[in-house]
């Protein structure tokens, strides 16, 4: 009786495992912004319709996505931290990196605008002002692509905000959405990618404070995980997906995704 129950449990586990053992499916280790903005919900059905390949998206911070891919827990990497991505390919974890699309980062803040940076298109000046005034600023602090970009911008502005960590500089150590919720909760400025902001549902009185600086350009890249490093990857399907994304058809699809009549991502894959 006990033995039979145990057998049934084992069988149940095996069956549960079977559900996703189809050949034609891949896992994309992705940054959260592309997933949270709803891009995949729009793109993937088009791709699956055409190829029959099922794409499963694990949306985590760029840093974690890269580490997961290094552990062979994905077939394709789609993130936005170019230096880290290039290192990933150089180390042999990925076959090759291709520019895919971009959007841009913005800094949003409360309507009251305590640091007086509203309407600025000079990110260095705005960050310096925020630091000078000691206005609250919320940071991802999670080694994600957005966090890395933010740190680079602080560095350009000649400020080391981590010295004020816990004071006016608040590192949430969480994803973009959680950080936005936290920032809005405490009235802090926060840097976010535009796509996440447009589709974010809990804006309250927050407005875009800083935008339009070329330094805030946010480039996404796509990298198939290397079969030499990870024999388990579904190379063919992964390559098919990466190829499709940068193809004319994929690029058109990306450009066609809008939220509230705004285009969120701008395709810029090199045409061949």
């Amino acid at each position: 009786m006990r033995k039979r129950a145990l057998g049934a449990a084992t069988l149940a586990i095996l069956l549960a495992g079977q559900a996703c053992a189809q050949d034609q499916s891949i896992i994309v280790q992705s940054t959260t912004s592309t997933a949270n903005s709803g891009l995949y919900d729009y793109l993937l059905p088009i791709f699956q319709e055409k190829t029959g390949i099922e794409v499963n998206v694990v949306a985590v911070g760029t840093g974690q996505a890269i580490r997961n891919a290094e552990n062979c827990d994905g077939d394709v990497l789609l993130v936005h931290a170019k230096p880290s991505e290039e290192k990933f390919v150089e180390a042999g974890y990925g076959t090759s990196r291709t520019d895919l699309m971009y959007n841009d980062f913005i800094i949003v803040g409360p309507e009251a605008d305590p640091a007086g940076v509203g309407g600025s298109d000079d990110v260095q000046g705005a960050l310096a002002k925020i630091a000078e005034q000691g206005a609250l600023f919320a940071s991802r602090g999670d080694d994600s692509g957005t966090h890395k970009k933010e740190m680079a911008l602080w560095s350009d502005a000649g400020v080391d905000p981590t010295a004020a960590s816990g004071d006016w500089y608040r590192e949430t150590g969480s994803g973009m959405g959680a950080t936005l919720n936290a920032a809005i909760g405490m009235g802090a400025y926060v840097m976010t990618d535009r796509a996440t902001w447009i589709s974010f549902g809990n804006k309250q009185d927050y407005q875009i404070a800083v935008q339009g600086d070329e330094d805030m350009f946010n480039q996404y890249g796509v990298i198939p995980v290397s079969p030499d490093h990870c024999p388990s990857v579904n190379t063919e399907a992964a390559q098919t997906f990466a190829d499709w994304l940068v193809s004319a058809e994929g690029q058109t699809a990306i450009a066609g995704y809008t939220v509230a009549d705004q285009q969120l991502f701008f395709p810029n894959a090199p045409s061949n």
């Binding site: 896992i27 949270n36 919900d41 499963n56 998206v57 694990v58 949306a59 959405g177 919720n181 549902g201």
Partner: peptide, 26 residues
Amino acid sequence: GGNIDHLTRVMTTAIALETSKGDLAL
């Protein structure tokens, strides 16, 4: 589980996702 849509998304991970999207009501 990875909170993969149609594969490993459960109630709690869906709640976490909607919270991170700022869709607090949902």
